[in-house]
Amino acid sequence: MLETDRIQLHKLVEEALPELDMMIGWTESCDPLQTTPVFIRDAKLISKLTLGPFCSQNLAGYLVKPPALESVPKDAKPIGICVKGCDSRSLVALIQEKFISRDRVRIFGIPCRGTIDWRKVAQRVGLSDVKSATVEDDFLVIDASGTTHRIGLEDVLARKCLGCRYPNPIIQDVLVGQVATPRSSSLETTYRDVDALDNKPIEERLAFWQSELDRCIRCYACRNACPLCVCQDKCIAETREPRWLTQRVGLPEKFLFHFIHAMHLAGRCTGCGECERVCPMDIPVTLIKEKLNKIMEEMLGYSAGLDPDGVPPLLTFNPGETEI
């Protein structure tokens, strides 16, 4: 089935490429469990495009991050991009905030059945050499150190995928493959990890975050991978003017950084989980944003990235509001 989708994608891109400035998609990398983004201008490279559960990167961020597109003239052709359900929400949020205009992107929507978390694979097959990984029906088949492992896909999906309500793109120009079924339809399922943590006593929660965030090395992969962290090079984590953080690596700095990051995403985070995926120290940083997202949904009934014309609640006020 995946192969059929791949062929369909190649065909669609082939047709569209002449009208596109470029096509952003995924291709295989040196790691069988992870793909790498690919930027295609040359039709010869289209066959390299791939799909499937290893395509974990959210490509939407590339549309706003220098220098990939900064120098593209306004009248340039649109950019083609592959988006999964969660990626499309990031795209919608960026359109909402006018970082991207809808007519500048040609969206290849990819219904998603979940992406693989390589750490979960490692927990099962060890960190030894994974030679190849393929998907057969609902199983991941891994050849590692001469042994073949057959693991249920469900057991190695990324944490965010397990509570996914939007596996299908919110917006797209073309859809590649069959529509996927959401894994969750309730706040309870989507925010189960937040709830689990919230149900613990506050001391335990504090201890949890202290021990998790203590590992942070301030490499900023979480920030740079976030499609909605639009400050990038101008981030206050590194400036002295203003100087919010020192270069020390104590818990105060780490807490401050991660909570500034989260606050900047309040009402904007689309829960794509990139921050957590890219963390070299395996810190569940998406959880912080999930907590905010939950508050946003419960308090303001707002979920980012679902409506290209919607205004994020923190960027607006209602004239009828009583407390202004």
Partner: peptide, 16 residues
Amino acid sequence: VQMVSQCLSCGVCTYV
């Protein structure tokens, strides 16, 4: 451009 388009400009590679 071909080599670094994917790069996120984060500091992981340098820190590890």
